[in-house]
Amino acid sequence: MYELFKSKASAVGAEVHRVAGKKEALGFITSLLKEECAAELPGCRAIWAEGPFLEGIDRETLRNLPGLSFEVTRERAAQAKVGISEMSFAVADTGSLVQDQSAPADRLASSLTDIHIALVPSANIVPDKASVFTRISPKTSRYIAFITGPSRTADIERVLTIGVHGPQRLVILFVDELEGGRR
């Protein structure tokens, strides 16, 4: 299912990567933050929403990365270039990510930044939307988000613009080592 997801997500402009474990994921994220010149300046910061991935991670090492904060507020998100959050599921047949975004930090990290890095447990790739709704319920989840590619919109003349209402770049990172992640 990973290859189908990758094909569908890539077709709508997402970047899809896969790593074996947290160590490789941290290396990937660190490299991307350096590549994007994350710094303690407005418009250059990075925010990381709380989630199971961070359990057991030495945050002091990460705090040394310029501009990275684990405190996700509206103000910080508005000044951040990169947002990192965890997704609950990946839907193979549409290339979409799914997350219960009841926590405001998840919404801020995934929608207010220019670049969204989405961490997904590889085990949570499901074939279709029907499979998602056997695992997550609109009755108990107040805010279910489906994310398909970077933000895009078009005007009446069909001129496509990327990143007007959300991230210009969506980087999806599947991590094999993650069990089930958040639900």
Rank of each mutant, 00 (worst) to 15 (best):
N64A: 15
L62Y: 06
E50S: 09
V164I: 11
E75H: 07
R59C: 04
S131H: 08
G163M: 04
T73E: 01
A90I: 02
A130D: 15
L54E: 00
D114S: 13
K81C: 07
G51V: 00
L41P: 01
S96I: 03
Q79G: 12
A80W: 02
T134G: 02
A109M: 01
S131T: 05
A46R: 00
P52H: 11
L160K: 08
A105L: 03
R59Q: 10
G95W: 02
S141A: 14
P52Y: 06
I47R: 02
I57Y: 02
L160T: 05
G95M: 07
A77L: 05
R158T: 09
F146P: 07
G149V: 13
T94C: 12
F133R: 12
T94K: 06
S85F: 11
G56S: 10
S122Y: 12
T161V: 14
L119H: 00
G163T: 00
Y143S: 12
E40L: 09
A92K: 05
D114G: 09
T61Q: 12
K129W: 13
Y143R: 13
V159A: 05
R45C: 10
L54D: 04
G51S: 02
L65F: 08
E86M: 10
S88G: 15
L119S: 03
A39I: 00
V164L: 14
A105D: 10
D58Y: 06
F133A: 14
V159M: 06
L65I: 15
E35A: 03
K129L: 15
S88H: 07
I117W: 14
R107H: 11
